[in-house]
């Protein structure tokens, strides 16, 4: 099936099986490699992208369900006012260890700050619980979200 998609503000096409998950269409057919494969079961969050502004696990999202909705990945966060702040906080604090999960973390954190501009610790726990960091950079993720949302980091 040929699909016309809106990825990072561009119209693109992919001729793929309707069941193929968005993650693999992005990575294999569109060469958008920021979203990562971690589990394929929506358990780890490494594949998180925004669809119409909502954080979504691309690994369980069949391409046939995407339609013309706006798909935004880590690659476009530099053009997003909130995303850019989140990336800056992530860089300054040097959150990453291996870095593999961080694209997904940044996508979830950006969506959180957009829905709750001053997230509390409890908000952070709820919104970020779906994103595993195997290196366990959680204390820095918490600080980076506080910094990106202009709050005290203590």
């Amino acid at each position: 099936m040929a699909y016309t998609l809106n990825v990072n503000g561009r119209t693109v096409t992919a001729d793929v099986d309707p069941a193929k998950p968005l993650l693999w269409v992005l990575r294999e057919d569109l060469n958008v490699l920021g979203p990562k494969y971690g589990c394929g079961l929506a358990q780890c969050g490494a594949c998180t992208v925004h669809i119409d502004g909502q954080p979504v696990r691309a690994c369980i999202t069949p391409i046939s369900s995407v339609g013309t909705k706006r798909v935004v990945t880590i690659e476009a966060m530099e053009n997003d006012a909130v995303g850019k702040k989140v990336q800056a906080a992530w860089s300054e604090i040097d959150v990453a260890q291996c870095g593999y999960c961080q694209a997904g973390q940044i996508m979830s954190a950006t969506a959180l700050i957009k829905s709750k501009p001053k997230p509390t610790d409890a908000d952070i726990n709820t919104a970020m619980q779906g994103n595993i960091c195997r290196c366990a950079t959680y204390t820095r993720i918490r600080r980076a979200i506080k910094r990106a949302s202009g709050q005290s980091e203590a």
Binding site: T73, S91, A96, G99, I106
Partner: peptide
Amino acid sequence: RPTPQVDTAAIVTGQPLFGIDFK
């Protein structure tokens, strides 16, 4: 001196860096 990782900018912008990304 506290020094960010040399790959930090590439990590936070989702650049292909990892084995899985290599083509």
